[in-house]
């Protein structure tokens, strides 16, 4: 499995940087709820240079937004490298593979494979969820398309194959806790070249998970990017803790955000906590980079990247 870490698969900037052993920075860029490309261009201009690749979310929280592939192409036009997010909620295996061919033809080289938030959470809770395949099966399908030039049906792909640097997510804060490292191993075995974790606020639990991961040697088979996100206010912290599935916001973080919000310093404290998390995890064995999810707060990213001494980004 070591060749998994050295052989170039997609030639993406993110892949080259990670394979060269440098600490990577990725950030999230959410497409708009409308057809206006200038919204993406503005966000792209703000983020340019502050990350190595940018996650373009796929109807995140099951809310209709511009297609991640279309938005990814706009991001590419703006000179940034996208990581196309692809979920299994809205498409069956036919539509997913079709979109993957299209995304690759449009220049996408990184793909994050997700099962997707349940439609119940979104703006169309009455929609029929697809879930023909799950995230692990999606990873495997993308890998087989790339490495064996075969569609999921087993039929041969006779034209050019889509070559993606394959990403997956893992949540160290979900249960059963012991299964979380095993699930990561399954994703790696399925073909995940890199991993972006759920947002970390509980560093202690994250370290426990990383210990299991490194004990199993999983960090040698994939690149693990630790997920972080600045909190904006006590209200947002509360929302994260109680309403966002799989999130673990410890009391200490809640207390700090509550105190700071009371004196209108929520944003500053949120960024401070985010920087502290980055400091505590960046030197951990097996951490290859950081993934910053500043949801609808993209302008926080440059500040975080600079203050974390991760700027300027290396050229590869």
């Amino acid at each position: 499995m070591i060749e998994n870490k050295t052989d170039i698969k997609s030639g993406s900037n993110l892949e080259k940087l990670l394979r060269s052993g440098q600490f990577a920075v990725t950030a999230e860029l959410g497409p708009p709820r409308g057809a206006d490309r200038s919204v993406i261009e503005k966000k792209a201009a703000l983020l340019k240079g502050y990350g190595d690749a940018f996650n373009i979310t796929d109807c995140q929280t099951a809310v209709v937004r511009m297609s991640s592939i279309a938005a990814g192409r706009i991001v590419l036009d703006a000179g940034l490298e996208p990581i196309i997010q692809m979920t299994c909620r809205d498409r069956n295996r036919i539509a997913i593979q079709s979109d993957l061919l299209g995304a690759a033809a449009l220049g996408a080289k990184n793909l994050l494979c997700l099962t997707g938030d349940h439609q119940k959470f979104g703006d169309h809770p009455m929609a029929k969820g697809v879930f023909d395949i799950d995230s692990i099966q999606l990873i495997q399908m993308v890998k087989i398309l790339r490495d064996e030039k075969k569609f999921q049906s087993g039929q041969e792909l006779k034209a050019s194959e889509p070559r993606f640097f394959i990403g997956a997510a893992e949540n160290p804060f979900a249960d059963p806790f012991k299964f979380r490292a095993i699930r990561l191993a399954k994703k790696i075995a399925a073909g995940a070249d890199f991993i972006q974790t759920q947002i970390i606020y509980n560093v202690k639990r994250f370290k426990e998970w990383m210990k299991m991961v490194t004990d199993m040697g999983l960090h040698e088979k994939t690149f693990i990017l630790a997920g972080v996100a600045p909190l904006k206010s006590a209200g947002m912290a509360k929302h994260m803790k109680h309403n966002v599935p799989g999130m673990d916001v410890p009391d200490e973080v809640m207390d700090r955000m509550t105190a700071a919000s009371a004196v209108k310093k929520g944003k500053e404290e949120g960024i401070r906590i985010c920087l502290e998390v980055i400091e505590q995890i960046r030197e951990l064995k097996g951490i290859a980079g950081v993934h910053i999810m500043a949801v609808e707060w993209e302008d926080a990213v440059p500040e975080i990247v600079q203050q974390a001494r991760l700027y300027p980004r290396p050229m590869v």
Partner: peptide
């Protein structure tokens, strides 16, 4: 089919 998602708590 491959175990719990990231939302199981």
């Amino acid at each position: 089919l491959n175990g719990p998602c990231g939302g199981s708590q």
